[in-house]
Design a protein around this nucleic acid. Sequence first.
DNA 1: GTTAGCACTCGACAGAGATGAGTGCTAATC
DNA 2: GATTAGCACTCATCTCTGTCGAGTGCTAAC
Lengths: 343, 343
Amino acid sequence: MLTERQRMILNAIVDDYISSAEPVGSRSISKRGDVGYSPATIRNEMADLEDLGYLEQPHTSAGRIPSHKGYRYYVDHLVPWNSAESAEVGTIRAFFAEKLNAMEQVNQHAAMILSNMTNYTSILLGPEVFHTSLRHFQLLPLNDTTAVAIIVTSTGQVENRTVNIPPEISVSDMEKVVNMLNSKLVNVPLYKLKSRLYSELGEEMQRHISHYEELMQVLDTALESDQEQRIYLSGATNMLNQPEFKDVDKVKHILDLLEETPTLLKMLSPVAGGTGIQVRIGTENSHEAIANCSLITATYSLDGQALGSIGILGPTRMEYARVMGILGILSRDLTAMLAHWYK
Amino acid sequence: MLTERQRMILNAIVDDYISSAEPVGSRSISKRGDVGYSPATIRNEMADLEDLGYLEQPHTSAGRIPSHKGYRYYVDHLVPWNSAESAEVGTIRAFFAEKLNAMEQVNQHAAMILSNMTNYTSILLGPEVFHTSLRHFQLLPLNDTTAVAIIVTSTGQVENRTVNIPPEISVSDMEKVVNMLNSKLVNVPLYKLKSRLYSELGEEMQRHISHYEELMQVLDTALESDQEQRIYLSGATNMLNQPEFKDVDKVKHILDLLEETPTLLKMLSPVAGGTGIQVRIGTENSHEAIANCSLITATYSLDGQALGSIGILGPTRMEYARVMGILGILSRDLTAMLAHWYK
DNA sequence: GTTAGCACTCGACAGAGATGAGTGCTAATC
DNA sequence: GATTAGCACTCATCTCTGTCGAGTGCTAAC
């Protein structure tokens, strides 16, 4: 579709604009060593590229900036793929060499490292409850009416919530049920837990236990998974460093969005069938607030199943090559670490 | 020290400035119904108040704005104390009427409500590990080398972390120790846990258990308390709504500060001897970044011991009366709820 | 097909008035 | 003696204007 020269020029413009944040003129492209044409020639090509929709002009007599379509072409065809610096690889490796125990820590720390390395905002979606299974369940009385339910998953995460215990339920019944649960439902994926609770234990419980329904109610809330806490955000204020967001009003909407956990969850959950590194540019994000942002995501997995995802949010004028390189390495290493850890 | 009229004028200026964010002129004060003097008289008094350090002038021929000293006087002597609106009390009561189970939820939710009600940034410091005691301890093997340590506190919080188990430690030894811990150290305050571990169990363990030191090492990391997660922040972006922070550079430092957990912890931990509602104005905060902010804090408690604190951060030009009223009610209700809950 | 030249466009910037809010001082008034 | 009216003065803000320069599009020459 595009000629070799057009691709070269588009590439040069995107590169220049990414680093300067200013509209790129024909002269500055011509002066770069790698493009051997005069400004006039470049101007002609630029006009063509604008007609094709790859470039935009903020106003007559300004230079050109890439359009969303232009970024898309750049990401799909022009990104130089060998661009994770060895220094960066070093940082990532060093991070994994550290002795980090809990998954909690890994996530928080990884998010921080990412945002520091890239100077963008990093969003990390922790291992999803969906794909982990039950390892241990416990109900610990706190006082007459409440107890703490503790769920330990196969990946070593611990969830807990407080539940109300109706007075008519006896302690021994509760113990019985917890024991049943632990013997029959261990290794069942969390998301199947509730249905299996009814199908496997229902009958037996009804036989042996009084106040079956109240107890079932308790277990039901105890096993309710809260996905809310699984998001790790870091470097939100890096947005403020970008010249395109010097205006408080613009950045406000973005930061507001970042405080909305459910929205983030939706944004980061991997697109059906999508795998590897995904780039969503500008309006492709279908969120008004980040129409001028790009979101680059990668997933990490265990046993071939996507466990969580990593995202970097920045302006559309983003260092795609670098960020994609970093994300690629990090997601690969995370996957490797998980495999090594939980086998 | 100040005459009645000066106090009245100072009060009027602070009130006006709080709602308008613009330097207040003598004329606008005079036009208010409650001050029956001409602009000229007011000007004279304003000049005096400036000499005394209660007011400042951004530049000649601008109106006056309150100095930190002025705000301090306002907060200490002039704040009208009956100023939590009934609608606001209603919101708070409604919040507590909701059935919230885990402390986690209460905190997160409370922080949100606060920031929504006040339009400032709210910071909530959850129950401090310091003043809660051990209810239950458990060590749950995940695989050959790792286990999850679970600590349940008297307030029903659950902490967990993953620890490495050296291969030479036998499962039975581990069980023995956990049982000892549960029988001897229950109800010991968390912060004393480590020292009591050595003093009360040390000897017995050394007698009955092989690889005493390795095991001790494991327990040591297992009982390490992580205070990091106890901070709940909400409405950080409300800062961006304030006209004084229209400049991105200024607000950047504040938002950066809000991302630094340890700093927040220090800022919110109650000053020695201080009780009730505290107001720290501008530079009293001893943090460069928030020299133009005020922090209003209140503590909530259980059994007379401060458990955590609530803070509202806003510009020095803050609705002190309203925020102090709201915080007062919320901290009282929180205290009441805790007492009711854990008794 | 490429490039040099040139007129043209338009944002950014700086300086000049004009405007008006607000002060400080002085003298008149209560 | 306290209060107020009057007035000159200050200074930030706004608007208008002209200049500058980066960059374009077009045409003609190479």
